[in-house]
């Protein structure tokens, strides 16, 4: 390949989203098979310390821009800097992690630079000097091979599809500061505030996910506090159910997921939803508790390495995808699992 590979790190206040390092990993794969030097760009507040860190992953150049106009993420000033650095380096490939910011900036940079965008790819290959990307379409029901006929090829890498490269602390270097492109008075979007979510472990990056479905709400042994109407009592029951799931999750350092039925019924916030209209996840271990396995749910978790299903209905479709299945009541099985993990992991 002619031209450089430019990787853009996504971070929040100096803390890189893990998928950013996977994008660097994807760049190393490309460089190994197709040649080309890797440059990394970090934008925003606290970008310099991050830019210093990237050399340990074997990249040749790093750039950062911590101009005050970039303190908070905003698409237009960010994309303008990405485009200017890409032009200066004559980058042939731009790589972003598939995050909200990554996907948005990739789309913008592609238009700005006259390239083409290939979001959320799971595999990259170089053939005849061209990049052939594989990406899931139709919620992973199919795979597509895509090529970009224009330069640069702008790619976002699916979370957990590429490996974080090995670090070698002996590699070091000095990042280069670059200037912002758009002055504040030309930026129409103003940031008025920020609220952090309290979800804890991020679903998309999680190694282990324990999910609950509509089945979390029907424990007959619980009696809700007096004075609740039927709907309140159902939600109360479901919350006890998610507490039980949460205990197992806490023990395993896992994130808590949910089906849409559980989210729509108000048992748990939407941030936890796994599936076609929720988060697409691919943890090493996915434990589905009281989830039937509707096609839209499977779309979000089918690429998990090991799937465990606990459901009282032996005909539940989730069992078809599961490595291990238990036909049983989650109120009996999940606490027993927590106890057993507790013993075996010595925690």
């Amino acid at each position: 390949m002619n031209g450089k590979i430019l990787v853009i790190i996504d971070h929040f206040k100096g803390e890189a989203l893990p998928a950013s390092w996977e994008a660097v990993g994807a760049a190393s794969e490309l460089a190994r098979s197709g040649g080309g030097q890797i440059a990394v760009l970090v934008l925003g507040a606290e970008s310099k310390p991050l830019a210093e860190q990237v050399f340990q992953f074997g990249v040749q150049e790093a750039y950062y821009c911590d101009d005050p106009t970039l303190t908070d993420y905003r698409p237009s000033p960010y994309a303008a800097v990405v485009a200017s650095v890409a032009r200066k380096l004559s980058a042939a490939v731009l790589l972003f992690p598939t995050t909200v910011r990554g996907r948005e900036l990739a789309a913008l940079s592609a238009v700005e630079l006259g390239g083409g965008v290939m979001p959320d790819v799971t595999e990259l290959e170089v053939s005849d000097g061209k990049i052939l990307a594989t990406r899931p379409v139709y919620a992973g029901k199919l795979l597509a091979r895509v090529v970009c006929e224009a330069t640069p090829a702008v790619i976002t890498t699916r979370v957990r599809a590429f490996k974080k490269p090995a670090a070698d602390p002996a590699h070091g270097g000095e990042p280069v500061r670059v200037e912002a492109v758009i002055p504040e008075e030309d930026i129409r979007v103003k940031v008025a505030g920020y609220t952090r979510s309290e979800t804890g472990v991020s679903l998309s990056d999680a190694n282990v996910i324990i999910s609950g479905g509509r089945g979390v709400s029907n424990n007959p042994e619980l009696s809700p506090p007096a004075g609740m109407d039927e709907k309140q009592a159902e939600i109360w029951r479901a919350q006890q159910g998610f507490k039980m799931i949460g205990e197992l999750a806490a023990l395993l350092g896992a994130a808590v997921g949910a089906s849409r039925a559980a989210v729509d019924a108000g048992y748990i916030p939407y941030e936890h939803q796994v599936g076609q209209t929720g988060k697409i996840v691919s943890p090493d271990l996915y434990i589905a508790c009281g989830i039937s396995g509707a096609i839209q749910h499977l779309a979000g978790m089918r690429s998990s390495k090991v799937i465990v299903a606990i459901n009282k209905d032996p005909e539940a479709p989730i069992f078809k995808l599961a490595r291990f299945g238990v036909v049983g009541d989650i109120y009996k099985i999940v606490p027993a699992l927590t106890d057993e993990f507790h013993k075996r992991l010595g925690k």
């Binding site: 905003r74 979007v189 940031v191 008025a192």
Partner: peptide
Amino acid sequence: RVERSFEEGRQIVECQ
């Protein structure tokens, strides 16, 4: 005035 969802939380932005 819009609340935008990101991985780590929501950003409140305003524009004409």
